[in-house]
Design a protein around this nucleic acid. Structure first.
Lengths: 234, 234
DNA sequence: GACGGAATTTGCCGCAGCGCAAATAAGATT
DNA sequence: AATCTTATTTGCGCTGCGGCAAATTCCGTC
């Protein structure tokens, strides 16, 4: 487990404006975890006894329906909080979080949440702002699902991933964790077949380069045109 | 404007556990508004200079997209907060709120939000729980849009309205504010035509009775069967 | 009680995209 | 290098539901 250092979290927006001694106190109560690829950080319906901060890696948050469908709610990037069920007034996790790659995570017992929020006002308000922006995101998703067609949603989904986790290469911008057609389908509300067809088509037009569990966006701008429906049915 | 009485808000969950003197202080800073049917309480993109509590009536919260689509985010019932943009870290309203009927509303200047949240912890935590449950709702909507078909979503939408604002009559449960096919379409992500077809079909089966701007659910249980997809294609 | 505007109903058509199924392809394993 | 597993591609048929358009009904209003 090793000794945890304040510098791990010092630069993060959620801990913005918190005194060094407080940071030490915060990190002193954390335990650090290594989560292997494809392993859960926490699971839907289980008691929410911890909340987490992703230090390194990428995590996919998935909600399962009773009838076996899975919907990807969001991807978590380093520096983001997750599993903050208690901030939402829940005692169980509303979704499952799966490591998309090997991850390093800090975890705190949920009972510390109220203390943190009260003792470190900027932590509390940052966290609630994060919740607020997730609410915005969720509403955007609803709107997209209501008003856009699949092609636009997939384009938008890829652009979101690019913005969040894009890594420049000399051939384009690579989404820097393994992602399957199925994963993309689950985050855009379609099927892997349709995603595959779209990617094939885009590959032919030189918009993207993709392969097994990887997607590289070559021409973000043209993808944006599609995402915004200004495509004129190319 | 008249004198505002503490009893107006004393029983409400958001103000649960707050001392009478504090309630007086809270209500002393409120102004009460009467909003006529079809008039906005607040509007998307505008400066969020107030937040509100609905005392009486029903309010529809709508988001408009740049390309002219409208999506109904939710309906607000008496006792609920609305326009709490600042709790989400926003300075403008993310949606427009329209009075579905004549409404009575309390409004406070947004600058009081931080004070309220800090001085009345139960107010703050109740409010954040409310935000949390809206986030849950939004995610449910996303999942429904991804995995269910229109018929199920419309059934589910009606049931939600029934639960929230249903008024028992001797013929069934009436949704007690005017609601058009178009409104239902905007909240379920479909078109008014499809809603009309569905309601007609359900009317023939004796599931609902509906008319101009009104819907009455006669057999909630059978509607639930449809909503849950346990319909076996009747 | 006739008129006008808005809401609703319904028929018909077309197609986006899903389901099914089978063929490949790309890694992983031994 | 041969084999196995998992991901991806692609063809084909079908259908849910959106788009268009026209008819009808309801309700407020003068």
């Amino acid at each position: 487990m090793g000794s945890l250092d304040r510098s791990l979290i010092a630069g993060l927006p959620v801990f913005g404006g918190i005194a060094p001694t407080d940071l030490d106190r915060i990190i002193g109560q954390a335990r650090s975890l290594r989560i292997a690829k494809d392993q859960p950080v926490f699971e839907q319906e289980k008691q929410a006894d911890s909340f987490f901060l992703l230090l390194d890696g990428h995590v996919r948050v998935v909600k399962s329906t009773p009838d076996g469908h899975e919907v990807t709610v969001r991807y978590i990037s380093p520096g983001e909080l997750m599993g903050i069920a208690h901030a939402l007034g829940l005692t169980t996790y509303p979704a499952t979080a799966i490591a998309a790659v090997d991850c390093i995570v800090l975890g705190w017992p949920s009972r510390l949440w109220p203390t943190f929020a009260a003792d470190f006002p900027s932590f509390g308000s940052n966290a609630y702002k994060a919740v607020g922006s997730r609410l915005q995101d969720a509403h955007s998703r609803v709107i997209e699902m209501s008003t856009e067609q699949v092609e636009q949603r997939v384009a938008r989904g890829l652009l979101k991933l690019v913005k969040q986790s894009g890594k420049k290469t000399d051939e384009g911008i690579l989404i820097d964790f393994p992602i399957s057609r199925q994963d993309i389908a689950e985050m855009t509300g379609t099927t892997l077949h349709t995603v595959s067809r779209l990617l094939s088509a885009w590959e032919n037009q030189g918009l993207v380069k993709s392969g097994r569990q990887k997607v590289m966006v070559v021409e973000p701008h043209r993808l944006l045109v599609i995402a915004e429906g200004r495509d004129e049915k190319a």
